[in-house]
Design a protein around this nucleic acid. Structure first.
Lengths: 181, 181, 181, 181
DNA sequence: AATGAATGAGCTTTCATTCAT
DNA sequence: AATGAATGAAAGCTCATTCAT
């Protein structure tokens, strides 16, 4: 039995979904409210800074999602390369979930947001946490140069998602481990 | 002797610059006109479809720029890896030119544009032309699997630009050849 | 030993302060609640008609304040002119209390309030009471034409406060008795 | 044959009228646009800072109006007191023009406006110009202490308008010269 | 009596575009 | 071809108020 999500959660999820699919600037708060099923006035009760706050919450939520996928892929892995392979397959499935306009969640959360406020620094901090997270898995699995391993994984995944999106083909992500070898 | 750029060229350049730095939706036509130094009413003579036309012209211009950089890097190269190294260094310099908010020109032109019209297909075609271009250089230089070489280069460069942007550090691009080896 | 003010008193004081400083329409109920340190939901228990009620209470409180200042100035005065002089000096001190944006409390309470409801008539009645109050002091002190004396005092004080405010200089009020002579 | 007023003039006049009658904060830009008969989008072409710009323009227009009334009253006057009398009668007529809610144009333009931006200083400068204007007439007519004469006139007129408004009686202004004697 | 979430009408402003000259 | 005024839909946000606990 799943509890009814709170208004705040509904808004965060709707924002994360729409900002990723359409981008921050291409998405209106009215769209977010409609998808969340929440009336206009409620937004500013939970997110006093409005759309910018929504972007922060969506970025946080997305970073948590990626961290969880990293853990799911690497926790049971016997070594780093097999963890990478599992991670890429999981991302390919994530890619397929949103049929149209699959912006990479990581890029989307990092680079499209309010220009004012500390959004960019906040996003950069989230990325650093993700890189540290990946690096920790690499170290635990005994990979040499664990921090660089994490960075390389991120670079590869970001680039592959871009090509997958242009081609509308999730297999670009699935074939990524082979390309890296 | 460089001729005074035409109004159309001024608008295209300004649009390419701003769309890359801020994104299509975050940029207003008024900003483009101001940067181009062109009066309000002129836009629709040169770009009858307005902002969407501007996006197409900016994407074309950017694709030409990347193709030119590819040629400059690979034409004099003795083999594929050395061409890759030169290309990455040239991109690092391009990255540094726009001090702030360095969106990757390739990603920016591909994914942020008008949702209507054939923009997305147009952008995908531009990317395919760039991949073919890179693949041709790989073939000419005798690299095995030339088409895949081109794709891998694109993936690596896209991902590295992303990390470089988050870190605000062009060296991520300069160190990319070492990482690929 | 001063008792802790009631919620109603806290709200009235905060409203009187803010309505005078910024005007009724420029002040949000949220601001009043914040200054009073009272939670959102409490307002409508104490002031069922909401903001309009708050305006009435603030006007009443302000009228009482002015009446008290009149009494303090004129009760010990040997004659009308000396009472006027004391009153002007007391107002100059009141002016200085609120460093910025010193709207005259009398004007503020009279003319900026809800447009509906009997607010305007209520405020006019308060002013008449103040005029009668001043007139009574004039009569008691043996001034000729006591009612007109009260009116003239009000006119002078209102006008002087206006100039003092524009000049940000309380001395305009202090020099008023000399000007009247 | 009066020329059709420009859009800018229509907006300025409508704003001056409504801001005086209702106050700056109680007036919506939509009301101004409706009274001016101008579509929404045009406002920001002529007044880039929107409502705040409108307040400045309305204040300027009102200051010019008062200066003109001063000139009309004092230019033909044989001495200062007779000029004052004429001026007060002209103001009484102005008072009657706007049947309801007759805020004093001078006070309204000075004290109710945007809180940010240099509005307050701008308004204070306008008042100083008006005071200098009145003082010049006093000097020309040979009145002693001409500058103070101007200030006293302003104080009296401001205060009298306030009482006239509360009483809804323009005669307060007409009787002002007698009171000053 | 007290509380914080909920509510939607209304606010000012920005937008890409069109029109008249 | 060039220009600046005009246009109204839509944007993000604030508001006083009501509701459920």
């Amino acid at each position: 039995m799943t509890a009814e999500p709170t208004t705040r959660e509904k808004l965060t999820l709707a924002a994360a979904e729409l900002f990723r699919r359409q981008g921050y600037h291409a998405t209106g708060v009215a769209e977010v409210l409609a998808l969340a099923g929440v009336p206009k006035g409620s937004l500013y009760h939970h997110f006093p800074d409005g759309k910018a706050d929504l972007a922060r919450a969506a970025a946080d939520w997305t970073a948590d999602l990626i961290a969880r996928i990293l853990d799911d892929a690497f926790a049971p892995a016997p070594d780093w390369p097999q963890g990478v392979a599992t991670f890429c397959h999981k991302l390919a499935r994530l890619f397929e979930l949103a049929a149209e306009a699959n912006a990479c969640p990581i890029s989307a959360l990092l680079f499209d947001g309010p220009q004012e406020g500390g959004f960019r620094d906040h996003a950069a901090a989230l990325l650093d946490r993700l890189l540290a997270h990946a690096g920790a898995h690499a170290a635990r699995l005994g990979a040499p140069d664990p921090q660089e391993k994490g960075e390389t994984l991120l670079i590869a995944v970001e680039g592959a998602w871009t090509l997958a999106r242009a081609r509308r083909d999730s297999d670009v992500l699935r074939r990524l481990p082979g390309r890296l070898a």
